[in-house]
């Protein structure tokens, strides 16, 4: 064999060995890959914003005007949802394992914001996906719990299913399950500030029989009376065919601000925008036109609608930014968060 070929093969082998060594040094564990702002946030009645930022896979719970994170979790844990109490004195959040396949348990923590004392108040063996304080009673914390974490089809990955509405009384330390629906999916939990009821987004699949009908059923917003869960009713527009995902209620204005698909952008990726539906006039209007992925509308104390925008929707990793706007969709502006990208 010629010397030049031996030298060439030797160089290739050396480079390969070097890259394999680099691979051992720089390969990251799945848990360490998450970075940046997530879409988990909440706005308190006094204008504080709590949000979650990942740094090398580690979840940090920050609050505006606080330089240090309130909470820092180990890399294998994540914060799935958080909520302020109506008086802004407490912050509750749900913590699960990133690897849900292995362990689908959830811990609920409450931070007393005057003392910054963190207490784990509840631990369950299944997934809690959302938490919401009762605006009428700061001791009562509602949550959505999925009884199973499974894949119904062998070619699908595992997801939480069999959802129901539960609550936990902080002072009495009592748990209550209100519904027995075992819903395939349930999200966007909100507790009524006037009535004994909650609002959630679910599939409108009450009367479906076949699998085809399940696929064609629409996502709607339901009001569930807690004393009579079977008496639930659809409060979103009953005439619209489009799916409704996230939402926030503005009872004084008889309006729902919700997230839905507005169109298809370049590369065939759906563009999600925020819309407003008035249930007195049945009028629907599009509020945002960012042509990205707007989600998680929340009403702030400044009468502004806060929402998250993912500028890399359907990409490998999301790129979230917090925005706010007037209730009519004007004056859209980015909300600066001190602890993002430091």
């Amino acid at each position: 064999m010629k010397k030049s070929l031996v030298f060439l093969l030797g160089s290739i082998a050396f480079l390969t060995a070097l890259f394999v060594v680099l691979g051992f040094v720089f390969d990251k564990d799945e848990n360490q890959k998450q970075n940046g702002l997530t879409e988990v946030y909440s706005v308190s009645s006094d204008g504080k914003i709590a949000y979650v930022v990942y740094e090398k896979g580690q979840a940090n719970l920050y609050m505006t005007l606080q330089e240090q994170p309130l909470i820092q979790l180990p890399v294998e844990k994540e914060i799935v949802d958080l909520t302020f109490s109506e008086d802004g004195k407490r912050l509750a959040f749900a913590v699960t394992n990133k690897d849900r396949e292995q362990d689908a348990e959830t811990d609920i923590h409450v931070v007393q914001l005057d003392s910054l004392e963190d207490e784990q108040i509840l631990s369950v063996d299944s997934l809690i996906t959302e938490v919401a304080f009762d605006p009428k009673n700061p001791e009562l914390l509602f949550y959505l719990q999925a009884a199973t974490f499974t894949n119904y089809s062998p070619v699908a990955s595992k997801h939480p299913h069999d959802f129901d509405v539960h609550s936990y009384h902080l002072k009495e330390q009592t748990h209550t399950q209100y519904t027995d629906m075992k819903k395939y999916s349930m999200a966007s939990l909100q507790v009524s500030s006037k009535d004994k009821s909650v609002f959630v987004q679910m599939d409108d699949d009450e009367n479906v029989e076949s699998a085809d009908e399940v696929f064609s059923s629409s996502q709607r917003i339901f009001e569930i009376p807690l004393d009579d869960p079977d008496g639930k009713s659809i409060i979103s527009s009953p005439v619209q065919e489009e799916d409704i995902y996230d939402f926030t209620l503005l009872p004084e204005r008889q309006e729902i601000i919700y997230q839905a698909v507005a169109g298809t952008g370049k590369n065939g990726i759906f563009e999600y925008e925020l819309f407003v539906f008035n249930w007195k006039t049945y009028q629907t209007e599009q509020l945002t036109a960012l042509k990205e992925h707007a989600s998680k509308p929340v009403l702030g104390p400044d009468a502004k609608i806060y929402f998250m925008v993912d500028r890399n929707f359907a990409g490998r990793s999301p790129d979230y930014h917090l925005y706010r706007m007037n209730m009519d969709g004007r004056n859209v502006e980015k909300v600066p968060l001190e602890s993002v990208g430091k």
């Binding site: 890259f19 680099l22 691979g23 720089f26 490998r316």
Partner: peptide, 19 residues
Amino acid sequence: FSLYLLHLFTNGDALMIWL
């Protein structure tokens, strides 16, 4: 070599066996 290095430094995945 390029695909391996891009995966390693942008995604943190070392595709050693494939390389």
